[in-house]
Amino acid sequence: MSTVTGQAAFAGDPAVSPRRAGLLRRIVNHRADYLYVLPAIVVMLVVIGYPIYYTIELSLFKTPPNLQMKDKIFVGLDNYVTILRSASFRDVTLNTLIWTAGSTLFAFLLGLGAALSLHREFMGRGVLRALLLIPYVVSAVAASYVWKWLYHSDFGVIGALAVQFQLSDRPINFLDNLHSVLPSLIVVNIWKEFSFAMIMLMAGLQTVPDQLLRAAQVDGANAWQRFWHVTFPHLKSVSMVTVLLLMVANFNSFIIPWIMTGGGPAGASDIWITQIYNLAFGRQRYGVASAYSVILFIVMMTLGYFYVRALTRGDEARAG
């Protein structure tokens, strides 16, 4: 779809130029249609277009800490070089990858398990589904405080339970330990978002035709074979979209690490987003923070491309 209309809309290619006159006329013919989208577009342009432009521009400048932007100095790509050369960049990137991959993988797997277990009708299924969805609905701020309390180094209930069951001889310090802090945060993130994957996959499961499953059964497939040969292929596109959405959300998630640890201890839970925030609003290095944002941006655009592709595969046929 994108390619087809893309061609028509940006008829820069000389081979397509006869279309150009047609394009102008089509725009004029459709002028009334644009009125419907105009309000949305104007708002988007101001609040999205301008910041994007501004971020890219700022990433090429050295900025004074007092936000007097007229005093900024053009430095070319220096900010990017600074970031890529900095000692922390590798660690933060590694943390970001662990955080994103870990959260996405486990949230997806738990969601898949839940969706498959909940697919069959049974008493209390609706209630169960609703309960499992609550963490997804509540604010990440609330979730962060609750888990911070659960992880509390002296009075945290998880540490106390560990002692109770003799898994540990004293309360565990989850969040102040370089090795346990990131996994601990990932658990919170999974708690918060696995039910999103669950609900998406449940909807996907409903599109699996009963007849196909019956046919497979008649053909002698066992439960696992039916899942692998019939159900799973039907879930492929939903899974794609779900994984991409989770990845994007995790790349961008700020609240849980920020409130629970602020990136600490000693940067052990620092990810790109918290790093950018610290650079900009903690150390007032706006230029560097902007350059960091642009890098993140490029990663997001790449993910976004796949997201749109996965999402619109079915749209094309309908548009015809």
Partner: peptide, 27 residues
């Protein structure tokens, strides 16, 4: 409606989903 640029507009709308809040914070 099927107006020119509709697809482009739509994707730009969709792509907004991808951008982290923090990037937009300062501007």
């Amino acid at each position: 409606f099927r107006f020119p640029g509709r697809t482009f507009l739509f994707f730009s709308v969709l792509l907004r989903n991808m951008f982290p809040a923090v990037v937009f914070l300062m501007p």
